[in-house]
Structure formats: C-alpha cells, structure tokens
Design a binder for these strands. Structure first.
Lengths: 124, 124
DNA sequence: ATCCAGTATTGGATAAAGTCCAAGGTCATA
DNA sequence: TATGACCTTGGACTTTATCCAATACTGGAT
C-alpha cells in the first residue's frame, strides 16, 4: 500500500460516488500533487480486478468508478446532466429471462440502468 | 436520401446486429468505397435522433448501433468475446423501482444488460 | 433540361479517454 | 548496504469521436 493508492482509495469513498478516471485524478492531485495519471489508471484497474470498485458505463463517454461494490445495486441516471444515483429495485431480473432467451449462454449477472430526469433538470 | 445514407441503413439491418461505428464504416466502404468516416458518424447520429437506431454501451469501448429500435428489448452480452444477443425478458423492472428509490427523478426508461459466457467461449 | 438554394459529404485536423513502456524510485529483506 | 520486487512517472501512442471549411450533390422550380 503506497501513498498513491491510499489517495485513490480515499477519493473513491461515499454513497452515490461515480467519478470518471479524470475526476479521480484531479481530486487525487489535490491531496498528492505529484501523482500521475498512469498511476490512477493502474490503481483503478487493480481495484476493479480485486472487486473493490465497479466500472460503470452509463453514458458512452468516460467510464465511471463506483466504490459501492459490496452491496449489489443498480443505477438511476439523469438523461440531461448525467447525475447517477445508486438504487435497489425489487424483483429478480435474472429469473425473468427464460431459458429460451438465453441462447445457450451461462448467465451470471444483470445490470439495470434506469433513465430519467432529475429534479434539478426538471425544474430548469 | 443519398447513396451514403442508404448504404449505412443497409449495413444496419438484421437481428442481433450490434456494430461499432468503425465496423459500420468498414462494411459501408465495401459497398461504396468513397464513403467517409464523418458521414458514417453523421448518419448514425441522425438515425439515433430519429429513433430508428439505438446506441448501446454494453462494453466500455466503442458505442454500438442496434437497428432493432422498434421492438423493445434488452441485451445479453458475452463477458469474454463481447457477442451481443437481443433478449426479451418477462417482468417489469420499472414497476420494481419504488418511489422511495427514485430520488425525485421522473423515470422514463430502463435498460437491462445480462452478462454471461456464450457457448463458444464456454467450450474453449 | 437547367439552375439554384439548401443540404450532405469529404478528408484532415483536433479532442478526449485510455493504454503502454522504459527509466527511475522505494521498500523490505538478507 | 546490496538485492530484487514492485510502484510510479511522464510521455508517446492508440482508439474513438467530433469539428470544420471546402466541395459535391439533391430535389424542386422554371
């Protein structure tokens, strides 16, 4: 555990945190000015491999990193400003996919992304 | 309607078609050698605006374009090779998101992505 | 059939996001 | 202190996508 990794881990902490790699880097630089982009990417990649952090691809621009990897959840995204909330819907989408629709795949995971407009953007 | 647009529309036709912009361009070039990348991007953008084609962000690399926009469906993705199938699960995920989990958003849409391993990759 | 205004296309430049790599630094151990 | 393992750095490079000015094409009006 190096100073650089500690800083990345610190930046990625909290509820409803979904930063891009670049945002992580900016915030990390604020705490440790000499940290490089490459290290941020390396560390994020390791955290993802370790299962400590999730990659989220809600919009098609930069990947986002979600530290809330240990409680399963899905995402609610504002179509206008891009804000992302963690949500915990009921139901079991895995059970809703009949065998006839599995094409022989071994299905292991489901991701659900709700889209809408957040209160801020609705007001504007 | 120009030759270029016709070619792009032709390339994007069929079931379980989920090409990247680059793949669309390659195939379009095969039919119309002088078509430019910019035109492919423009045309894809227009088709998306018109609601004729969907953008899919299943992996975090290039966007993919799905011509099957008129029958609602979700996606099943192979985690190894990236193959994508259209699927039609039962259930109603929208109904599964309680008000208490909506954070005041006006929720209008849900995307469900199943992940697993396709028969090919499982055999290998 | 021709002309025109408007729209589409082109290719090259540019941007944004991410990856790769060689060189150098740090740390624990012996 | 010397050694080896692993991290970090910065810059070059790749991939994906967008922008722009110049040119070409389209369809309707004449």
């Amino acid at each position: 555990m190096t100073a650089q990794r500690r800083v990345v881990a610190e930046v990625l902490d909290g509820e409803h945190v979904h930063l891009t790699a670049d945002e992580v880097h900016s915030r990390a630089v604020a705490k440790l000015p000499e940290i490089s982009r490459a290290t941020v990417y390396n560390t994020l990649g390791e955290l993802v491999s370790l299962g400590e952090v999730l990659e989220v691809a809600t919009d098609k621009r930069a990947k986002r990193y979600d530290p809330n990897a240990h409680r399963p959840h899905h995402h609610l995204v504002c179509a206008q400003c891009g804000e992302i909330k963690d949500v915990h819907p009921g139901g079991n989408p895995l059970a809703d996919l009949p065998d006839s629709e599995r094409f022989g795949f071994k299905v292991s995971d489901v991701e659900v992304t709700y889209r809408g407009v957040c209160p801020n953007c609705a007001a504007a």
